[in-house]
Nucleic acid binder design. Sequence first.
DNA 1: CTTATATGTTTACCTAGGTAAATAATTACG
DNA 2: CGTAATTATTTACCTAGGTAAACATATAAG
Lengths: 145, 145
Amino acid sequence: MMNRSELFHLLNQKVRLFSKEMNDYLQQHNLYSSQWTILYILLENGPMTQTDIWKYLQVEAPTITRTLTRMEKSGWIIKKLGNDKREKIILLTDEAREKLDLIQQSVQQFENDFTTNLTTNEQQELYRLLKKLGSERNANTNESE
Amino acid sequence: MMNRSELFHLLNQKVRLFSKEMNDYLQQHNLYSSQWTILYILLENGPMTQTDIWKYLQVEAPTITRTLTRMEKSGWIIKKLGNDKREKIILLTDEAREKLDLIQQSVQQFENDFTTNLTTNEQQELYRLLKKLGSERNANTNESE
DNA sequence: CTTATATGTTTACCTAGGTAAATAATTACG
DNA sequence: CGTAATTATTTACCTAGGTAAACATATAAG
């Protein structure tokens, strides 16, 4: 039998383990896992403003500012001014675009590896259970948005 | 249907959400969630060396050095030299001991709240599935415990 | 048109995780 | 015994998350 604190302890440990190993794995591409996440959504969605990105990832704006600065420095993305001169539009560089395919395969390999002890159904179930965690806490949830 | 990347994305987001809200919640006690974790295991296990702590939490030694420094500064713990003068033994202060009961109730309340949409069985199942994540990548799992 | 408000990004400062290398004390070995 | 190896902690430097407040540009209101 487990108590709830153990559940959250385990949750934390697994996520830390995942990101640690993912970072090790991505090192060969000179990339961090948080940076990969950004590359991935840019690949899926095309150019996005910074606000698009942090809203999508549900992190705060300064986090994205910083990470994008590093990514620009290492040649993954460029920032372009939008028509609205407040906003910056983020584009993948050609160099990034060339490498992404290989990296994506790499990541899939790693994720595959990390879930190897779970059947497809179990992964589905894990997803379903996680989805319920922490959401819509109090009866009448008006987080309409 | 979900793909594996979505699973990990969700996992990351929920953990971030949890620790963010936990931090908000603990602010009333002038505490951070990582610091709470340390207080909790000291309460359970009695005095421990730093190495005991980081091995238990599965983080690296410098992480614990830093967090304990902050916790000493804010009066939660004290460091005492062991017989082996390399090691430092970490003790709860009396002040911490007085407050811990109330805080623990607080935390249980919060964790309860966070899992309110999951039945006891679902929590059990979530625990079971998480346990399988990333462990013993190759072949047979013997995590008897 | 000018001022007030809202929006997008950044800066400054905080916690928390990581690695690599330094330091101090202990144990093991020739 | 004295040196080599090991162990416990710390320091320096990195990424990544957070908040609060500053800044710049747009939009709305009087």
